[in-house]
Amino acid sequence: MYTQGLVSIEGAGGAEEERFQARVDAEERIEPNDRMPEAYRRTLLRQISQHAHSEIVGMLPEGNWITRAPSLKRKAALLAKVQDEGGHGLYLYAAAETLGSSREEMVDALLEGRAKYSSIFNYPTRTWADIGAIGWLVDGAAIMNQIPLCRCSYGPYARAMIRICREESFHQRQGYEIMLTLCRGTEAQKAMAQDALDRWWWPCLMMFGPPDGESQHSDASARWKIKRFSNDGLRQKFIDATVPQAHYLGLAVPDPELRFDEASGHWHSGPIDWEEFRRVLAGGGVCNRDRLEARRRAHEEGAWVREAALAYAARQRRVAA
């Protein structure tokens, strides 16, 4: 669903790196067997695997409502949506594997707390309206971040992102439609929608990462055409697209400083609480512990199943040999 630029990058130099940079500058796609700087490989591996982890952990907050969805149509749509996220995780792990890591290694890094996933999933889904808000806002922010990745210099990632973005756009429309239905419903439903917007708005703005001046990794990622737009630029684009959608729903955006600036043509928004961002990132969100424990439990409780499948497959191979 979303990946945060938490990667560290070493400086590049030398004739070979210049040739690599020339290929990137010429918008050539870098493929798995091509030579690439070690820092480029590591940067991508970390970014793609974080993205995959985010898809997998992201199944939990929405999965929280599958058994309680308020109509059969919504239940089926939500189950299908969460299934899509699992599918995204699968292609992304496969894309990351082309960079020389295995899915097992990546999953271990997640479960041991060495790898990050998007912090947005450390917020709880308290009501059904959160399912609408996640589709509309979280997937909306993810799309803003991910559309440029469809042109990422690394071929397998770019191709995975094309398919993922198509599905995310569908999810976003579905989420907005949930919100619209709530906003045209009873007073209680509309209040539920407003409460969800109040809780998700600011965390969604944080999804674009720290302000440009404080972002440590953007330079090399931009040079390698992994990242094509700045955090603040994408955040502004998201705000400009989303505020009119909130108004159409009849909902108030929880930002007292929000106003349209005629001169720039952009919505001006108030300051983001970066303390909250850092706190949740560091493990202080409502659900950080629960998310990781749920993943660990599924992994541990599934160990005997995976062992059985391997043992059976090995035996079949021996019989065939």
């Binding site: 599958i66 189950l79 299908a80 160990a303 199943v305």
Partner: peptide, 25 residues
């Protein structure tokens, strides 16, 4: 659908959801 997010293998997340979706349909 109770398995969602908790299956032993990622491929099974997809398969269990698929089967569940068929049945709900």
């Amino acid at each position: 659908s109770e398995w969602t997010g908790h299956a032993p293998i990622l491929e099974e997340e997809l398969a269990l959801a698929n089967i569940g979706l068929d049945l709900i349909g």
